[in-house]
Design a protein around this nucleic acid. Structure first.
Lengths: 221, 221
DNA sequence: GCGAATGGCATTGTTAACAATATTGTTGGG
DNA sequence: CCCAACAATATTGTTAACAATGCCATTCGC
């Protein structure tokens, strides 16, 4: 699977490892050996160490002195804290997006939602998580919000962590159509530049997502 | 000043460099040479590189490939984004703290504020930024909120960045007594477990802090 | 005289060997 | 039979030398 990619630089290693972690090639809690990875990427341990430190920085692995690095796993408390953080951040994103949105931004959201409704109709059971970042509702809003700091926090740290924690907790099915309807309500608030409403609806959207996650855990546990 | 501390490990180097950056020993934008630091700490370049990567991870330095690392400097837009992020996070913190606070937590806040009023009376002009983390109003609230994720984000990343950006923009005087009064209002909301009010007051508190910063910049610019 | 190419220097990126530490397996005593 | 101390192994931490890259001054052509 992980063929010998010769002479990778650090950022390529980071990207490849991140994909491996998010795709489930590495299981949650699995140990990542520097020497093995170094051989896989046809490189010495130095760049691998750099890459692992960067992954630790975005919370995808945990690095312990003299022990090693492991793919991160999340306790239920950590997941709860995670959703509380998202609630705060994405509420602010929705508020700012509503304040900033002009005609072109509103059209951008509208066309995105029209695209999503197609996907929903074709795959009603699917998790409704878009692959590309430009096609994700939440990240598009974060872009429109015009706050690069929050956008990067969501895009580079929280969203990868979200993918990982859903995987590590065996979440297979999302809320699909229901989430899409909530997106539409948020979009309507943005169309009228109602920041407070957009913030409130987004917070409820995240809360609903957390409740689905939590109930799913209780059922399987 | 930076005497030869022999045989430091990585976390000690990180701590020392962070203190150097936050104390102003290194100026904003200043380049940090690996070889110089390595000699200062009596260690080779490897651990220094590790330390610098970790500082880059918390946003105190910027690391550019084949160029080097520089003490981070903040544009006014970045500072604005920073305060918008704080507004979201600390609003959530205040809400959660109000929801979680029992008698012991309320007493903890109360004794902290009584301590602060002493400081204010003795040094009315001082910036009202506490040195130790256990004595900072915002971090104590984050602790009471019971969300380790947000607490660490504030304590390990945003607060060091706050110190740095205030320094790099030559902010010398804070809002002192006024900020303290706002803290008291927030505390009162927490005493009645009114999460929504605590959140709102905290957000206004952060906004007021941003406005002070912004006006200060316009005056000097 | 001025701008572009070039060469040397300074610095970061990488490597492989070495040191220190943790984990695992083994042995001896109780 | 079980537990503790110890040895062997595996892995991370560190080092110093080497490679590659960017920066800067000098020089060459115009």
């Amino acid at each position: 699977m992980a063929e010998n990619k010769q002479r990778c630089n650090v950022s390529q290693i980071v990207e490849s490892l991140q994909e491996g972690i998010l795709s489930g090639m590495f299981q949650a809690g699995e140990r990542l050996l520097e020497v093995d990875l170094a051989e896989q990427y046809g490189v010495s341990r130095g760049p691998v160490r750099d890459a692992l430190r960067r992954l630790a920085g975005v919370g995808l692995v945990t690095s312990t002195a003299n022990i090693g690095v492991h793919v991160r796993s999340f306790s239920l408390d950590e997941v709860k804290a995670f959703y509380q953080l998202r609630e705060a951040l994405e509420g602010q994103v929705a508020r700012l997006a509503a304040q900033n949105a002009g005609e072109s931004e509103k059209e951008r959201i509208d066309s995105l939602l029209k695209e999503h409704v197609q996907v929903i109709n074709i795959h009603p059971e699917r998790a409704y998580v878009q692959g590309h970042k430009d096609r994700d509702f939440h990240l598009v809003l974060a872009d429109i919000a015009g706050n690069k700091l929050i956008h990067n926090l969501l895009s580079d740290e929280l969203y990868p962590q979200l993918v990982l924690l859903r995987r590590s907790h065996r979440i297979v099915k999302g809320r699909g159509a229901k989430a899409f309807l909530e997106h539409q309500r948020i979009a309507e608030a943005i169309y009228t530049n109602d920041g407070e409403l957009a913030c409130l609806l987004m917070q409820r959207h995240i809360q609903a997502s957390w409740k689905t996650f939590y109930n799913g855990q209780n059922l399987t546990a």
